[in-house]
Computed example of a mutant assay.
Amino acid sequence: MAHSTSSAVVLHHSNPAHGHQAPPDVVVDALPYYDGGYEEAGVREAALSLVEDETRRYKPTKNYLEQLGQPLYHQFETDIMKTEFERLSNRLPMEMLSMKRYELPTPPPGKQTDFQAWNECVENSYAQLEHQQTRILNLELMWDYGANTWKIYNTSLQNMLEQAQKQLLELRKQIQEINFNRKNEQTHAGAKLSALEQTWVGLVGKNYEIECAIVELEKEVANLRKQPKTNGAATSEH
């Protein structure tokens, strides 16, 4: 980034041993835990330009999920669900709850003296009575055992919740360790880069001083080479 030091990390995207051709290496020139200057002018614009350039070069296919296969949307639909979805798609109103099964109708007016008609009505009443007795029995069973069943179910849910929370804490711990290791590695790498940079600056300074000294010595050598000629001319005049 904008820090005076720079770092280069080479990332390999595939393993040639698996039969895949290795793409060009990507050089990541950043140590986010060490670099500074992210708030300086032009840094955000430069990052956005890199993102835009990557977006222009990325050309996804029409169906980029093709390798996942076709989704099975209707695999778990029951007949009742299909009928209800069809009703919703046709914008039809929902049918009201039918109470006909709970009615005890008498024979129609034309069969008030028909024994078979009255017998069917009596059998219907027996069936309705048995149904109500079964409901009462189910309610009594729920009253006796339903509370314990729900307690066991709630206990199972609580155990599942505790296990999920433990897994979440473990994942957060792993993430924290990874971030700590990244920060530690980048901090050490940054310190090494700073030391190398200082060494480089010192060597560049020494080279500059040596070059300046060489220039001065060349000037002195040039002056010394001119002196004998001058002395020789003065002797000839005498």
Rank of each mutant, 00 (worst) to 15 (best):
H3E: 10
V10Y: 09
L11G: 01
H12Q: 14
S14E: 08
S14G: 03
A17E: 09
P24L: 05
D25C: 00
V28K: 07
V28A: 03
A30D: 00
L31C: 04
Y34E: 00
D35F: 05
G36C: 05
G37Y: 00
G37P: 07
A47I: 01
L48P: 02
L50C: 06
V51W: 00
D53W: 00
E54G: 01
E54P: 01
T55R: 14
K59W: 04
T61E: 10
N63D: 13
Q67N: 09
L68K: 08
Q70W: 14
P71A: 06
H74F: 15
Q75M: 12
E77D: 14
E77F: 14
I80V: 13
M81S: 05
E84R: 02
S89F: 03
S89K: 04
M94A: 13
E95I: 02
L97H: 04
K100N: 10
K100F: 06
R101C: 03
Y102I: 03
Q112H: 06
Q116V: 08
A117K: 04
N124D: 09
N124C: 05
Q128G: 01
L129R: 13
E130H: 14
G146V: 00
A147F: 06
Y153D: 11
T155E: 11
S156I: 14
N159K: 13
Q163S: 12
Q163D: 11
Q165F: 00
Q167I: 03
Q167R: 09
E170G: 03
R172T: 00
Q174R: 12
I178N: 08
N184V: 14
E185G: 03
H188P: 03
K192A: 13
L193N: 08
L196R: 08
L196N: 14
T199M: 11
V201P: 01
G205M: 10
K206M: 07
E209S: 02
I210F: 07
E211P: 04
A213N: 03
E216H: 04
L217I: 02
E218D: 08
V221E: 05
G232D: 12
S236A: 14
H238L: 15
